[in-house]
């Protein structure tokens, strides 16, 4: 195999087919950018999830004095509280910790949480705050198990899941990631088709050469390799530009626009290491797609 020959044929092909290659590079760059964005969103969901995971807890509020709730004819008494605690403890290992928060502690937490709203603190009667159990779960998704176990027990006012907000957040993030991957899928298909067409054009414009090659007994690999490489090279250049696009997304969107959302996202956004981690994916998928598209086209349009 004489690589020098293959590469000189490749160079001739690229020169002749420059505009087509430009189009291929542009569409490949966009599809790879969508792919990379999708991958980064996946990483971000992972980061956010991990940061929320330890913090997720379930609050079991006990009946306070004068609750309108039908389950609460009176303030929860000690026997009821003990029964609730036992029930929660029996849920181990799903339940990892059970902590009783009495009114004094609840008042402290309340003051802490609303220290920016002194009027509210001033107007709140500490005895109106309910006692509660703060329950941590080994698997925050299994909130229902806790809820069904204790919700209807006497003395339980309401079981609250801090998860609801996080679920919404993940819902939004997941649908954004899905949108990016759909955009990526569509543009990868477009890129594949375009690469196929470009390779076909290249093959037709060099029919004379390939006809002679066939006749003098060049192997099909030798005949097709320059065209295959042409398609793959365009895909790889597209992937590199796509990575450039992702770097721009990281610099101008993630690192600046998303700054105010930092606490919500879990205190940390995707790092440059996550951005660089997309490179093998972009290159791998663009090489795969362009090689397959070129190969299929050559099989179809070039007789050997």
């Amino acid at each position: 195999m004489r690589l020098r020959f293959v590469f000189s044929e490749l160079a001739i092909g690229l020169r002749r087919n420059l505009l087509m290659m430009f189009a291929v590079v542009v569409i490949a760059a966009f599809s790879m950018m969508f792919l990379g964005t999708g991958l980064l969103m996946r990483s971000q969901v992972g980061i956010t999830k991990a940061s929320y995971f330890g913090k997720l807890q379930v609050s079991v509020y006990l009946c306070p004095e004068g609750s309108p709730h039908p389950n609460c004819p009176a303030k929860a008494n000690d026997a009821q509280i003990d029964a609730i605690q036992t029930t929660l403890e029996n849920l181990r290992p799903l339940v990892t910790s059970v902590q009783f928060v009495d009114q004094a502690q609840a008042w402290q937490i309340f003051q802490q949480e609303f220290k920016d709203a002194p009027d509210l603190v001033k107007n709140t009667d500490p005895s109106a705050l309910p006692e509660s159990f703060v329950v941590k779960l080994s698997d925050p998704k299994r909130f229902d198990a806790v809820n069904s176990a204790v919700a209807s027990m006497p003395g339980v006012d309401v079981v609250q899941n801090a998860n609801t907000f996080v679920k919404k957040l993940f819902g939004i993030m997941n649908s954004m990631r899905f949108a990016a991957l759909v955009a990526c899928g569509v543009s990868i298909i477009a890129a594949g088709v375009l690469i196929g067409v470009a390779v076909q054009v290249a093959a037709v414009s060099r029919r004379r050469e390939t006809g002679i090659m066939r006749l003098v007994g060049a192997s099909s690999l030798y005949i097709q390799l320059p065209f295959l490489l042409e398609g793959v090279l365009a895909g790889v250049i597209g992937a590199l530009f796509g990575f450039g696009g992702i770097a721009l997304v990281k610099t101008f969107i993630i690192d600046s626009q998303l700054k105010p959302l930092l606490p919500v996202l879990g205190g940390r956004v995707v790092e440059w290491s996550d951005v660089f981690a997309t490179i093998p994916w972009l290159l791998g998928i663009s090489v795969l797609v362009s090689a397959v598209a070129s190969f299929v086209t050559l099989r179809k349009y070039m007789r050997v």
Binding site: M1, R2, F5, M213, V216, A218, Y222
Partner: peptide, 8 residues
């Protein structure tokens, strides 16, 4: 030469 180049 082309005929020889393409058969390596």
């Amino acid at each position: 030469a082309f005929a020889l180049e393409v058969i390596g």
